[in-house]
Design a protein around this nucleic acid. Sequence first.
DNA 1: GCTTTTTCTGAAAGAGCTTCCAATCAGCAA
DNA 2: TTGCTGATTGGAAGCTCTTTCAGAAAAAGC
Lengths: 339, 339
Amino acid sequence: MATIKEVAKKANVSVSVVSKSFNNYKDVKEETRQRIFAVAKELDYSPNINAKNLSSKKRMTIGLISSGVLNDNVKDSNAFDIFKGVYRAVADSRFDLSINLIDSKRQTQQSYVQYCRERNIGGAILQGIRTDDQYYKELIDTSLPCVVLDIMNESDNGMIGSVSIDNAKAAREIAGYLLQRNHRDIVVIAGTPETYVNKERIKGVEEALQSCGLELEGLTVLEADFSEEQAYLLAKKYLQEQQPTAFLCFSDLMAIGVMKAVKEAGLKIPEDISVTGFDDLVFCSYTEPALTTIRQDFIEIGKNAAQLLQAIKENNAVKQHIWIEHQLMERDSVKTLAN
Amino acid sequence: MATIKEVAKKANVSVSVVSKSFNNYKDVKEETRQRIFAVAKELDYSPNINAKNLSSKKRMTIGLISSGVLNDNVKDSNAFDIFKGVYRAVADSRFDLSINLIDSKRQTQQSYVQYCRERNIGGAILQGIRTDDQYYKELIDTSLPCVVLDIMNESDNGMIGSVSIDNAKAAREIAGYLLQRNHRDIVVIAGTPETYVNKERIKGVEEALQSCGLELEGLTVLEADFSEEQAYLLAKKYLQEQQPTAFLCFSDLMAIGVMKAVKEAGLKIPEDISVTGFDDLVFCSYTEPALTTIRQDFIEIGKNAAQLLQAIKENNAVKQHIWIEHQLMERDSVKTLAN
DNA sequence: GCTTTTTCTGAAAGAGCTTCCAATCAGCAA
DNA sequence: TTGCTGATTGGAAGCTCTTTCAGAAAAAGC
């Protein structure tokens, strides 16, 4: 691989001119720039990223820190879609991407901050992180531009952005969908209670109930920690005593668990019991019956996160939080009840 | 972030000792090394990766080049699992990982070689790449250590490894599974014919047929390009004229397409027609009926690829090709026919 | 006490690029 | 011709680390 020196020599200019040409400095004559590009192409040259990062104080690489994906039991591919979205947005820019997957179990010894610093990372996107993560606060405090997903950050120093769907609204919609179809005995299979998304979704369900003039006390909420297995167990146990008209699940995975329990109880979906999910993972359209759920566009979320991060870095972020549109995917797991 | 100099000063040693400590040189006393580590920890120091890559001639970062994942219609998560496997193996080593996703459509202008060189990448794992890819040969020729997935490389300069399951054997097994259950009218839904895996799988099916004393002429092979939609269309058309006892599909996605066509034709699975898949994507156990298929352990594949690559780099690769075990997942989509 | 061996030092030479500052060279007004 | 200005270009320091090397210091062996 040719170096900048060789290009400079062959083009009869100094190294600095070549560097400037490649970095869009205005003070190099267009003609010269073109000549340099021609030579560069001929020599198959392109700037070495390590050297570039090392010498420039500007941070050109952004990090994607993603927690939980490495766990063995992870079946959903949200993280991957987010990853794709981020990747695309970053690929279209002049930034480079560095990915850091962490396992909730064997936490890396390294803090995120350290990770970022040693790689010269100028901004990070955090996925699957929880606010009680030991390193989270450390990173937020560091004034490194960050975008967090599915978390709403309050300590605002202008360097933290976030993106997510409007979880409360989505929950309101799907609860409303059920209520409209005359379901009154709904049990909510919720996720981890401390979680931002969970709180929002609960809020949404309650709002939907209230706007129908229903009281909240009647609402049964089972906390299944976003786990298929947990949801299965909880639903199974619940069904031994009672039979609601619908299960409203805060994730597709939990919905799958619930469906299994329902079927095992000898009940039919949606004839006997309706079930709804949340997320719209790929397999939702392949279940029997196909699952009615809320679609989150994870690719879009990733893309927006990357763009927001860049905006923050360049100090022209208009808003600190971006809401991504969700969509209710109406399929076959909900029955309209007689009034 | 502290630099190596500050650590050296605070630990009362010279810079070179610190460097050596971090790079496992033997000529530094264990006691000193520990002292240095302590100081490093105290100062929150860890070597700057860019500087390290720049200065050392050793290439410490390996690249994962993955084609096709960015396409919009991609539903499978094989790539992600492979990615996870690679990531884990790399994280356990002292290497760093750089990921390069490419879209089959808008091919990056950059060749893989260029990508690798400008990032100082010392070895690459190629996933989803086809041998007729314009940049593939270029990379192979470059004597950069490479591990390719689902491709068998012939031009062996000792720098190319590969890992995959034994596709022929797997196909033999699943075909045998069908034959044992007295299926004689089997139509194969194959993938892209030029593809290595496809050829192997065809071979496997043929072998199974032969070992049952059956002739190959009777075998119908429909080429669906590994696409769910194509498979659906082809199966639908085929069913208008004939009704085989089983569809043997070379991917789960195609199996899904076929199942849809079968159901639409008013036929039941497995009572009227049996269907088998290949890969064992997550949703295979959620379909109705659950799909009998061949499980590929993509995480394991990724892990082995990374390990093989490191072995090749260090010149102690025992074998150039690693076979990963597959597994026949017996579920509910195949019926045993009366003899 | 003397020779080996082990450990450490300091300096220097990069690795390939960015960027500040100085130098050059037009063209043009004085 | 001289002086000045703005557009270009060149030089050199600096980013942080690795590696090598000659030799010094300390520890170990006999």
